[in-house]
Design a protein around this nucleic acid. Structure first.
Length: 103
DNA sequence: AAAGTGACGCATT
DNA sequence: TAATGCGCCACTT
């Protein structure tokens, strides 16, 4: 059930993230025409749909989610590595190399 | 209806 | 560098 268009837009945007890339919450918010990064994160936390690559979404520092909805940040990190995303830390991705920019 | 809460972001302390 | 405060606004109680 679609609670509102904002959440839906978040999911659509996240699904468009290409493999091996990551996006920040704030960036998605900006694309959606809002400044509220919290809504983006909240939308993903509420999401249970495996088609949404939520592990490709990180915060402005490249930090992974502390409470990843599926298995935890550890699993999120593992998925990123599996896609070819190198981590600078166990909880951080290299935005300089993997930050996705909309075409 | 009002208050509390939160996968964030940025400025200030 | 870490901690705190405030903005943002949808969701829950």
């Amino acid at each position: 059930m679609i609670k509102n268009n904002l959440y839906q837009k978040v999911y659509e945007t996240v699904k468009k993230i290409p493999p091996g890339k990551v996006v920040t919450y704030g960036q998605i918010a900006k694309m959606l025409g809002t400044r509220d990064a919290r809504r983006v994160g909240h939308a993903l936390h509420a999401n249970k749909d495996p088609l949404v690559p939520c592990h490709r979404v990180v915060d402005k520092s490249g930090r992974l989610a502390a409470n990843f909805a599926f298995e935890g940040s550890k699993e999120q990190a593992r998925r990123l590595i599996k896609e070819g995303v190198a981590l600078t830390d166990e909880m951080h991705v290299d935005l300089n190399l993997y930050l996705w920019k909309k075409l």
